[in-house]
């Protein structure tokens, strides 16, 4: 017997994989797990990941403008930038220049410490909605009630919720049924047969493959998708088709 990862990664090679949850650059919290551009690309190669929606640790942990500049400096043809933003007018002005397809928000006091509610961030939501930019946010950054308010007041704002966790279904599923513009990534959707059961019941369109690279190994999320007893078309949609459609690269 000779265990290897060949079977998993050869299957993934045909998926045209696009990862919705990737971080770039130095991190003050995650130390050696964080990867600069060349090392991150090498790790993507290893896991057959062709492209990724990428945010920068500098924007998450330190300064939004500096983080966006670092992301621009480190840009690669395989990265789709998830630019960071806050409600401040200077940042919104900066977004105009960046012409964003995806914008990542960091609400929590540990990050950029602003309210997710419309009285604080409504103008930014309106801007993103008008230019059809994808709002990207980690579940850890906002509570479910705030998410419901945003989805209600901005019905054309498409939101990608990352890191939903495996205990989330009693919140996540009603919101997905009520708000067609809500999507989530698969990184931490890892209860027993949870992804498989979701697709059987709700179809594959609302879930996007994510790995949390470089903090997590993509081997985990890839194995969950590879072993889900769902159709090949469903796997391809989750593996990248859904994200490409949200970014306007495929017809919706």
């Amino acid at each position: 017997m000779s265990p290897s990862n060949v079977e998993l990664l050869s299957e993934v090679a045909s998926w045209n994989l696009m990862d919705a949850n990737v971080h770039l650059g130095r991190s003050g919290i995650h130390g050696q797990l964080a990867l600069e551009k060349s090392a991150l690309l090498a790790e993507m190669d290893r896991f057959q990941t062709r492209r990724a929606l990428v945010s920068h640790f500098a924007a998450e942990e330190y300064d939004i403008s500096e983080g966006n500049a670092a992301l621009a400096r480190d840009m690669d043809g395989r990265f789709v930038p998830a630019w960071s933003a806050s409600p401040e007018p200077s940042i919104v002005h900066e977004l105009e220049r960046l012409q964003p397809k995806a914008v990542r928000l960091w609400f929590s006091p540990l990050h950029h410490n602003f309210s997710s509610l419309p009285w604080s961030t409504g103008k930014l939501y309106d801007y993103l909605q008008q230019r059809s930019a994808l709002m990207v946010v980690s579940r850890e950054e906002l509570d479910w009630n705030a998410l419901a308010i945003i989805l209600t007041e901005f019905p054309k704002l498409r939101i990608l919720l990352l890191d939903v966790g495996y205990r989330s279904d009693r919140y996540l599923l009603p919101l997905l049924q009520t708000f067609p513009q809500l999507y989530f990534d698969s990184t931490t959707y890892v209860a027993h047969r949870q992804l498989e059961s979701f697709v059987e019941t709700h179809g594959p369109e609302r879930v996007l493959f994510g790995s949390r690279l470089p903090l997590y190994t993509p081997g985990a999320a890839l194995a969950v998708l590879a072993t889900a007893r769902i159709s090949d078309d469903s796997k391809l949609a989750i593996a990248g088709g859904n994200l490409r459609r949200l970014l306007g690269e495929l017809p919706s």
């Binding site: 998993l8 890892v190 993509p218 985990a220 890839l222 194995a223 969950v224």
Partner: peptide, 16 residues
């Protein structure tokens, strides 16, 4: 299992 997804941990090991 059946709390968490067994394939997740298997993927960690097989791709290490």
């Amino acid at each position: 299992m059946p709390y968490l997804e067994a394939a997740m941990v298997l993927g960690r090991v097989l791709t290490a």
